[in-house]
């Protein structure tokens, strides 16, 4: 059984560290540079906050990827996340941001291969003849996983206008997507893979920390960074949970729908109050009634004998 106090401490540590690092680097970055660079620095501050938040949360739990990186989770943590961070830094530092979002998309698509590498899902033949997927099935798995990650990147990329209303709208959308990420982590844990859910908590906490600072400091670019990382983390947890854990396709679909509903429905050019309430209720219903509660009931039914 997971240590709930440790998990909570890891989440809070990641959130506080990410927020504090953001705060510490943000004012200096914002004041010292103007123009395009002035917009880029907050994003770099957000990325450094995210990285330090995730690392501190993982350190709290003692999560260290085992070398060589043979498991999907280790590859996701040690290759996938740094790759996405690098892609985001490259995109931030480049002067023509609008035209070079491709590093994010490429990195997101590559994550699918990083996660599945060496697993039975990419094996066409095996020496023992125990696993042998058809080449078409392997290609389909990689392509669909890559498309999922790219779609999530695309969803986070929507609506980058930096108006005040948009910042709040983006904050609410990202917050609801964060709930979907947290739900995915809990469902994967309830399915029996504690390590994956536990590793997702620092990510959730760090994204939450950056998001809160973005909203409090009225920095839309921070909210954007948090939005992308929530989507990528969600994609990673869903791929890991489905291909290595017991996250079913209906569960994954409902969680993705819950994340996508606010990202699509809440737009910056509308008054968000009434709409947010409606979307929030819808997301809550989707997550709690269709995913979380059935997962808890199933966990109690299956594991009650073992845990009693």
């Amino acid at each position: 059984m997971p240590d709930l106090w440790l998990l909570t401490a890891s989440f809070v540590t990641a959130m506080l560290t990410a927020g504090l690092v953001c705060l510490a680097t943000l004012p200096r970055a914002g004041r010292s540079v103007s123009g395009h660079r002035g917009a880029v620095r907050p994003q770099l501050a957000a990325l450094s906050g995210l990285a330090s938040g995730v690392l501190s949360g993982m350190a709290m739990q003692g999560i260290v990827p085992a070398l060589p990186l043979v498991s999907g989770l280790d590859r996701w943590l040690a290759i996938g996340l740094p790759l996405l961070l690098l892609a985001d830094v490259v995109r931030c530092c480049w002067s023509l941001q609008k035209f070079i979002s491709w590093p994010r998309y490429l990195a997101a698509a590559a994550i699918a291969i990083v996660i599945l590498f060496g697993s039975v899902h990419l094996q066409v033949e095996s020496d023992a003849g125990l696993w042998a997927g058809s080449p078409a099935a392997v290609v389909l798995t990689v392509v669909l996983s890559g498309i999922l990650m790219m779609l999530l990147t695309g969803l986070a990329d929507r609506d980058r206008d930096a108006s005040e209303l948009n910042r709040l709208a983006a904050g609410v959308r990202t917050g609801l997507a964060l709930c979907a990420l947290q739900t995915a982590a809990v469902v994967v844990m309830l399915g029996g893979w504690i390590g994956c859910g536990a590793a997702a908590l620092p990510l959730t906490g760090a994204c939450g920390g950056v998001l809160l600072i973005g909203l409090a400091a009225r920095q839309r670019s921070l909210v954007d960074v948090a939005s992308h990382w929530v989507c990528w983390s969600l994609g990673g947890v869903i791929l890991l949970g489905h291909f290595f854990g017991r996250l079913t396709i209906p569960q994954a679909g409902m969680i993705l729908a819950a994340a996508a509903i606010p990202l699509v429905a809440i737009r910056g050019n509308q008054s968000i109050r009434a709409k947010v309430l409606g979307v929030w209720a819808l997301v809550a219903v989707v997550l709690f009634l269709s995913v979380l509660i059935p997962a808890v009931l199933e966990f109690q039914r299956r594991m009650s004998v073992l845990l009693s």
């Binding site: 697993s119 095996s126 399915g191 029996g192 893979w193 290595f244 854990g245 299956r302 073992l306």
Partner: peptide
Amino acid sequence: ANAARDEHLRQPDYFDTKQFPTIE
């Protein structure tokens, strides 16, 4: 002799059978 425990053992916290399908 317990399906839930077997399912748990197959997951990455234990044997990680999707990544390591065989013991040799």
